Computed example of a mutant assay.
Amino acid sequence: MTLILVLKTVWMVCAVGIIILVLLHSPKGDGLSGLGGQAQLFTSTKSAETTLNRLTWTLTILFIGITIVLSAGWLGR
């Protein structure tokens, strides 16, 4: 496996992860995370929202960073 292939795979996983995490967010703190009792994994809805926010921002920064590296062609072909 080349480094570019690994980065593209991580990039696609980040994209899907961002989509899922954004769908889990809700303005009322419930959202899709209320399905199946997932909201009860956290001690409170505030910590659930905080965790979702941190994960979303982490994946977004990683996604943007990999996008810049792949589009700039710094790794060669």
Rank of each mutant, 00 (worst) to 15 (best):
M1I: 05
M1K: 11
T2F: 11
L3S: 13
L3A: 13
L3W: 02
V6Y: 13
L7H: 07
L7F: 14
W11S: 10
M12D: 09
V13P: 02
C14D: 12
A15E: 07
V16T: 12
G17A: 11
G17Q: 05
G17Y: 01
G17T: 05
I18Y: 03
I19G: 15
I20L: 15
L21R: 01
L23M: 14
L24C: 14
H25I: 04
H25V: 03
H25Y: 05
H25A: 05
S26L: 00
S26Q: 02
S26W: 03
P27E: 14
P27H: 12
K28I: 08
K28A: 09
K28R: 07
K28M: 09
G29C: 05
G29D: 04
D30W: 06
D30L: 08
G31H: 02
G31I: 01
G31W: 01
L32V: 13
L32Y: 13
L32A: 15
S33N: 08
S33M: 14
G34F: 05
G34P: 06
L35T: 05
L35Y: 14
G36K: 03
G36A: 06
G37N: 11
G37W: 07
G37C: 08
Q38V: 11
Q38S: 11
A39F: 07
A39E: 12
A39Q: 10
A39R: 11
Q40R: 13
Q40W: 09
Q40M: 11
Q40E: 13
L41R: 13
L41C: 01
L41T: 09
F42C: 04
T43S: 13
T43F: 06
T43L: 06
T43E: 13
T43M: 04
T43C: 02
S44I: 01
S44Y: 08
K46Q: 02
A48Y: 04
A48C: 04
A48M: 10
E49G: 05
T50Y: 02
T50N: 03
T50G: 03
T50S: 00
T51R: 03
T51G: 00
L52V: 01
L52I: 03
N53W: 00
L55Y: 04
L55F: 09
L55V: 04
T56V: 03
T56N: 07
T56L: 14
T56C: 06
T58Y: 09
T58N: 11
L59M: 14
L59R: 02
L59N: 12
T60R: 08
T60D: 10
I61L: 15
I61H: 11
I61F: 15
L62A: 15
F63W: 15
F63L: 10
F63K: 08
I64Y: 09
I66V: 14
I66C: 11
I68N: 07
I68A: 15
I68P: 00
L70N: 10
L70G: 09
L70Y: 07
S71H: 08
A72D: 08
G73C: 07
G73E: 05
G73R: 03
G73A: 01
W74R: 01
W74M: 04
W74V: 12
W74K: 01
W74Q: 01
L75W: 01
G76F: 01
